[in-house]
Design a protein around this nucleic acid. Structure first.
Lengths: 127, 127
DNA sequence: ATCGCTGCAAAACATTTGCAGTTTG
DNA sequence: CAAACTGCAAATGTTTTGCAGCGAT
């Protein structure tokens, strides 16, 4: 538990919204001017791995194109990040409101079911 | 409508899953070896803008950290990509199946409500 | 003393852009 | 022919890595 990590954690606790590592860096810099962006990245990883914070999207690394035109949603494996499709019906939920608080106008819903795919469940048994 | 665009479209139609631009490029290359990755990117943008294909995630550019610890989901503006939070209760849904087809083990659900934020609705009136 | 952590700089990716030359309608 | 499109190479932006030195236990 280093000083940098301590301050980083406190700063993040006080922030709002969905900041990028860069944005966190800009704020932390004010308290620890010598901190490096690499350290911010390393610690954010650590926090996410520990479950202290989480990532908004598990698949932000590269763009992925949706080829399946049928109404469906996604099952995303939190281990291996694999995305598989699940039919909207098989999931069976869905609100239908078209206006949400704040005046947001709904076009569609996109559900990520996050969990473990069969392969990673199997791997888990080995641990 | 160029030859490259034609082939690219046909190839993508036949692919499955959620390929990255690189993966599409590797396949198209087999039919049009001289095609460049930049062209693939440009055309994918074009297809997405036209609504022919869509992106799996609207916020894949950079990592975003979730700071809000309360159960909530996201409203993502398809215009400006801004993410705002909405309480799980305010959204009002959610069955709780823990096993899904294919043996996927559910940890949690993450819902993106995609649509237009008030600001972009206002801008839209100007057009 | 040991191990982990930092900061720096370079590397590795992913994506975009400028531009000259080519193709399409 | 004009406008749009391609391929290339360089630029940009994001994240990771190697490593030498510093700090925490």
């Amino acid at each position: 538990m280093t000083h940098q990590r301590q301050v980083l954690f406190e700063v993040m606790q006080k922030m709002h919204g969905h900041p990028s590592p860069e944005e966190v860096y800009e704020i932390v810099r004010k308290k620890v001017p010598s901190i490096s962006l690499a350290t911010v990245y390393k610690n954010i990883h650590l926090f996410v791995d520990c479950g202290i914070f989480r990532e908004v999207s598990l698949h932000h690394g590269t763009q992925r194109i949706e080829l399946n035109a049928r109404p469906h949603h996604h099952m995303v494996c939190s281990e291996c990040k694999t995305i598989s499709d699940i039919d909207e019906q098989a999931l069976g939920l869905m609100p239908a409101r078209k206006k949400l608080p704040g005046g947001f106008l709904v076009e569609r819903y996109s559900v990520d079911v996050i969990g473990l795919c069969p392969k990673c469940q199997a791997k888990g048994l080995v641990h």
